[in-house]
Design a protein around this nucleic acid. Structure first.
Length: 587
RNA sequence: GCACCCGUAGCUCAGCUGGAUAGAGCGUCUGUUUGCGGAACAGAAGGCCAUGGGUUCGAAUCCCUUCGGGUGUACCA
């Protein structure tokens, strides 16, 4: 298993010591730090961390086994390591008790900064996510998007980036007119209040109705086009209707966002940006970057980057999807002094973003290279794709509701089955927190480039590698710490303490935490942190099962175990926080 | 047609910047609790890492072939 590519304090020491030894021995100039590949040995008895010596073999023209031997023999004393030994082609390191306790545990317990780094210090990064259409409610696909946007933002903040979270609201266009049209014709002046429906649900209902009506009478498609023209002309009646319905939808979205914990620093509305972009394109045309088509459309040749030809303005002079995206991106860099600009959007738009970034580059914007599409796979159902119009979507509000109901049932059952157990004071909040964690972890744990198959019956369990498992581990530790009658403080060991295998595994897990965050953030992939924290919890639960803590006689052992518990709790709590999952103290 | 992505245990997924014996969860079978939360822990069974080749001391991992699945390829958004 490979690890430790980033800022770990002891890494620098290893690099410099090894370089010195090899330079002296083999009389070479410099060792490329990239050759030093750290790993976690398969078994803690072999070592706590390891360095593979294969890469040196070629350079030094010697067997990796021999090199490992030489390195171990010439290793210098270090505060970080107790022993360093060669094992075949590997150089294995065992952490010193001093490092584990006075450095690692101390950091975990006392430093709110543990896990963070300053890779992004002084840099601003924008994360655009969610970007919904205001004609129908949010479904599970949006759920994945929102969660990725939120968590990637949180991860970047751990690296000390200044993060600007934005949402581009697609609030105009032909698809918006469809629900408006159906509402106007068949709506009977319904309102969220009169129907008791959430605003986005009400409008979504008419989006579906429109589709049915169009199947009965395809001619109404013309009415929609007219409606869009009226909207663009500022027709009062159409505009009023639009404002009313959009207001309802956005109100509905806000409830969903709030419930799942999505927040935005800045909203961009397509209705305000869609006319822009023309000037930039016409300017580029004047500069000879774009061409004019026979019918007057403006196009750009992207053949050199194998993206063909792209129309930027239609023959009738109207804007396109890409036109307003050009405009919005220019605005973003004008509004904020951005170092990076991320778009969390599904992989079906990969081509669109390649085109967009290429265009901006050709237009001469130096920041074009700092734009990045965070692409992810789709969410499918066991029997295929989700389709709004065919009613096969998993509505995100409904999903949260049903998960909450399941969690509440579970809590009641567990409570009545164990009368001696603690009482859940706030069943409603707890059920909500458990439901949230089940959904969030389920979605986040899958790598970005993979599609997710969502099987409602099987996917959202509370057992195994799930959000509730993580919460359970946290609650268990809290319960344990509460029962401790002595203060849990970090003290220097009077007698040397030998950590057992499970304890060492936990400590090595804690060492990896900053690395897991950095890798997760730099890859824009929360799944890495998901895997990490699940493994840490599994290691903890095994440790907990195998060893007594509070009731063990040896005070030193008890205190050291409690320290580990507290440290795991700290790291677990931070991670859950990054995921937007409540770290329950009871459940 | 072309481009990109995916193919690892019955199912859902880790592992992929090449390295020590390919790992988890669910499901199936079997154990563990007077010890602090059993939403836990352990064991068994289950793999030609889609296929065929190549590079390498070494390939699930990199390159190419084939097959299977997905997405994109608009003067739609």
């Amino acid at each position: 298993m490979k690890i430790l590519n980033y800022t770990i304090e002891f890494k620098n020491q290893i690099v410099s010591v090894i370089s010195t030894i090899l330079q002296k021995k083999y009389n070479i100039d410099k060792i490329d730090p990239g050759l030093l590949k750290f790993e976690i040995p398969p078994d803690t008895n072999m070592g706590h961390i390891a360095l593979a010596c294969f890469p040196f073999a070629k350079l030094l023209k010697n067997a990796p086994q021999k090199i490992a031997q030489e390195l171990s023999k010439n290793w210098l004393e270090s505060i970080y390591f107790k022993t360093v030994e060669a094992n075949g082609p590997y150089l294995n390191f065992f952490f010193s008790p001093t490092y584990l306790k006075q450095f690692l545990l101390k950091d975990c317990l006392e430093s709110p900064e543990y896990g963070k780094s300053n890779l992004g210090a002084g840099k601003t990064i924008m994360v655009e996510y969610s970007s919904p259409n205001t004609n129908k409610p949010l479904h599970l696909g949006h759920g994945r998007n929102n969660l990725l946007g939120m968590v990637v933002s949180n991860l970047l903040e751990q690296l000390d980036y200044q993060v600007v979270k934005t949402c581009l609201v697609n609030d105009r266009g032909i698809h918006i007119c469809k629900s408006m049209y159906a509402y106007q014709k068949y709506g009977n002046a319904e309102t969220p209040e009169s129907t008791g429906l959430k605003g986005d649900k009400l409008v979504g209902k008419y989006y579906v109705i429109y589709d049915q009506k169009e199947k009965e009478n395809p001619d109404i498609a013309e009415d929609i086009k007219q409606m869009l023209r009226d909207w663009e002309d500022g027709d009062t009646e159409v505009r009023n209707l639009w404002e009313k319905l959009n207001g309802w939808v956005l109100e509905g979205f806000n409830h969903t966002y709030q419930r799942m914990g999505a927040v935005f620093d800045r909203l961009y509305f397509e209705s305000e940006t869609y006319t822009g972009g023309r000037e930039a394109i016409l300017e580029a045309y004047k500069a000879g970057i774009c061409e004019k088509e026979p019918n007057g459309a403006i196009s750009i040749d992207l053949e050199d980057v194998k993206l063909g030809k792209k129309i930027l303005l239609r023959g009738d002079g109207t804007s396109m999807y890409i036109t307003q995206d050009i405009n919005t991106t220019i605005n973003k860099f004008a509004n904020y002094d951005l170092d990076y600009n991320l778009y969390v959007v599904g992989n079906e738009q990969e081509n669109h973003f390649k085109v967009l970034f290429s265009i901006l580059k050709k237009f001469g914007y130096k920041w074009a290279d700092r734009c990045e599409h965070v692409s992810y796979g789709m969410v499918n159902l066991p029997d295929g794709k989700m389709k709004s119009r065919e009613g096969t979507v998993v509505d995100f509000d409904d999903l949260m509701d049903s998960m909450k109901a399941l969690a509440a049932d579970e809590l009641k059952e567990r409570y009545s089955a164990n009368e001696n157990k603690h009482q859940i004071e706030n069943l409603d909040n707890t059920a909500e927190a458990i439901a949230q964690s089940a959904i969030k972890y389920f979605i986040l744990k899958t790598n970005l480039n993979k599609d997710i198959t969502f099987n409602p019956k099987e996917s959202l369990s509370f057992d195994g590698a799930t959000g509730p498992y993580l919460q359970y581990t946290h609650a268990r530790i809290c319960s344990l710490l509460n029962k401790s009658t002595t203060a849990i403080e970090l003290k220097e060991d009077v007698n040397p303490y030998e950590w057992n295998e499970e304890e060492i595994k936990l400590l090595v897990g804690l060492v990896r935490f900053p690395d897991a965050i950095q890798q997760s953030a730099l890859d824009r992939n929360p799944a890495i942190l998901c895997t990490y924290i699940y493994e840490l919890c599994r290691t903890f639960n095994k440790f907990y099962y195998e060893h007594q803590i509070l009731k063990i006689e040896c005070v030193q052992t008890r205190d050291n175990r409690l320290l580990i518990c507290k440290a795991v709790k700290a790291v677990l709590g931070k991670t859950l926080n990054i995921f937007g999952i409540e770290a329950l103290t009871r459940m």
